[in-house]
Design a protein around this nucleic acid. Sequence first.
DNA 1: CATTATATTTATATTTGCCTAAAATACGTA
DNA 2: TACGTATTTTAGGCAAATATAAATATAATG
Lengths: 218, 218
Amino acid sequence: MLSLSEENYLKIIHKLESERQVKATTSAISELTQTKASSVSDMLRKLADKEMIHYVKYQDITLTEAGKSYALQIVRKHRLWEVFLVEKLNYRWDEVHDIAEQLEHIQSETLIERLDKFLGHPATDPHGDPIPDAEGNMHPTRKRVFFSEIKVGAKGIVQGVADTSPVFLRYLTKIGLGIGSEFEITDRIEYDQSVELAVRGRIIAMSREAAQNIYTLE
Amino acid sequence: MLSLSEENYLKIIHKLESERQVKATTSAISELTQTKASSVSDMLRKLADKEMIHYVKYQDITLTEAGKSYALQIVRKHRLWEVFLVEKLNYRWDEVHDIAEQLEHIQSETLIERLDKFLGHPATDPHGDPIPDAEGNMHPTRKRVFFSEIKVGAKGIVQGVADTSPVFLRYLTKIGLGIGSEFEITDRIEYDQSVELAVRGRIIAMSREAAQNIYTLE
DNA sequence: CATTATATTTATATTTGCCTAAAATACGTA
DNA sequence: TACGTATTTTAGGCAAATATAAATATAATG
């Protein structure tokens, strides 16, 4: 059983690992956790002692099997609680992150399985992210295709978002876009790679930055 | 905003205060929290600094208005989560305490009000204890009459238990007694003050100790 | 490839919440 | 009321998780 802090580190390392762009390094973790690199360094030694990470000084960090499994359990808890908050307590998708961040650390052998059952074994959270099963398997999902990559003229349904910050989610809500929304990419502006899309009969201009964070599935 | 430890101390002090038999003293808190008296003493100074308790060295401790209000919010959260666990996740009443003990510390402005609504504004928790409202008011409850005080021949309905330890709750479940159970006190043995009662047509002998922890209302 | 810049680690310190041991205070009773 | 006992507080320390500052290793560049 790990401490709250240790759990948060595992989660962050998992996030960096699974978002294959970035490697898990001391400074990347420091950045994401908003703690000093020296503190991260301390914690990495502790997690290595507990065999949760592979750690060689000055090199990239990777999770061990045990560490990955532990991290996926936290992800599972986080996402199931998010579903609970949205489905049962009527929260909006941009409001649930901070609360789920706390709830994901509740320790109980049985709680999360009962919650999962109560929620009807949902496959994804309110942002479209898949929920790992009790054994830590993410049911293989189709490949994500971001708005920034979809060819002009293509239609589809929004399946998820890669940025779950409240400010981004509120923007999407404002323009009438959510998971399940139908869309058509009507144009891409070469100058700044922004896109134009049709949602509910309205034409919307969207920056490349935003378009890189909304996806449908192949 | 108080730390988890500080919240637990407030809760314990409130428990001692409201169970009017015992006064909140350093040693009583030490006993209940299973921490050394010296540690308690440290914490009391901290809580006094934060104006959560009235504290004069070597004297009994009482909560300030702020402290009482804070403590009641924790009690509210604890009891609402217990209702959730029993009503929605099908836990038994002897299983919920430890999980609620964790959930009661989740910090959110809105979560508990939404949970309360979701649960249909329950008046009591699964052990019959009243749930304070958002302002910290316990709706005035009728006076408790314990099995150890009920006169022989009287009938009634179990309204609550004063001991919520799993071992006690499992004993009650085993003898077929729960909140809402009809009973009749059929005899009281003068020798050891044990009682005899009829539940669902069966006659049960119950020790004075157990009888002191089950009650109906006046 | 030498030097500078950046990233990382080590050393040392702080805060929180706990501990043990010792000192101070309060209480029961002879 | 004075003594012994029990309670409470103070003093000094430890572990966890953070920080700052200094040392060291790696990477980037002219």
